[in-house]
């Protein structure tokens, strides 16, 4: 493991909060992105990312320094995100129709609120559409797609993060990729 990270963790284990704040700064982007792509909502992603770091802080004694710190951290983040998705009521989904609005859903609402200047319009809408299609994938495919294609992690790392065999990760990459193709093909 990176000696700098190792030193920081040693300090955190002794209760050094400044060292922990350095760790947060180093990993907050990746952790936030994993949560964001898993749940699709900025506020929820922020809460989940924050909870990830709080769990990491309170459980730092359980972290074994011979393993990669990011793997341990991403595992907390994906577990929290998957738990969140499991507990979420179906009506909380973005594509759930808002009662009495005749086909209007939260997804459209967000898209109209976050409209960017003209030159980014198409690009931005495309981003939202792709995020929407990701959020329609079952969580078990969503997590591997996010970790492989957005975090660029190896099958081995993904298998450690999700605690499933590499062969299972591979199957889920294939099925997730195929599910996405079916959802995205009308754009090509």
């Amino acid at each position: 493991m990176d000696p700098k990270i190792k030193r920081l963790i040693k300090k955190v284990k002794k209760g050094d909060q400044a060292a922990f704040s350095e760790l947060v700064n180093l990993y907050k982007n990746q952790v936030y992105n994993i949560c964001y792509r898993m749940v699709g909502l900025p506020q929820e992603a922020e809460d989940l990312a924050q909870e990830t770091f709080l769990r990491a802080y309170t459980n730092i004694e359980r972290y074994e320094t011979n393993r990669k710190f990011s793997t341990w951290l991403y595992r907390i983040a994906t577990n929290l995100s998957i738990d969140y998705l499991r507990k979420k009521k179906p009506s909380d989904y973005l594509d759930a129709e808002i009662p009495g609005t005749n086909g209007f859903n939260m997804y459209m609402h967000i898209a109209s609120c976050e409209r960017l200047p003209e030159e980014h319009l198409l690009e931005n809408e495309m981003q939202e559409t792709i995020q929407y299609e990701i959020s329609q994938l079952p969580p078990k495919y969503r997590s591997v797609i996010v970790l492989k294609y957005l975090q660029d992690l190896s099958l081995k790392e993904i298998s450690e993060i999700l605690d499933i065999p590499e062969t299972t990760v591979k199957t889920r990459v294939h099925r997730g990729r195929e599910a996405l193709r079916k959802r995205l093909r009308h754009f090509f």
Binding site: Y32, N33, R37, M126, I130, Y149, L150
Partner: peptide, 10 residues
């Protein structure tokens, strides 16, 4: 398309 998604920032 997936890979082209922007990084989000906390």
């Amino acid at each position: 398309l997936i890979k082209q998604l922007d990084q989000q920032h906390p």
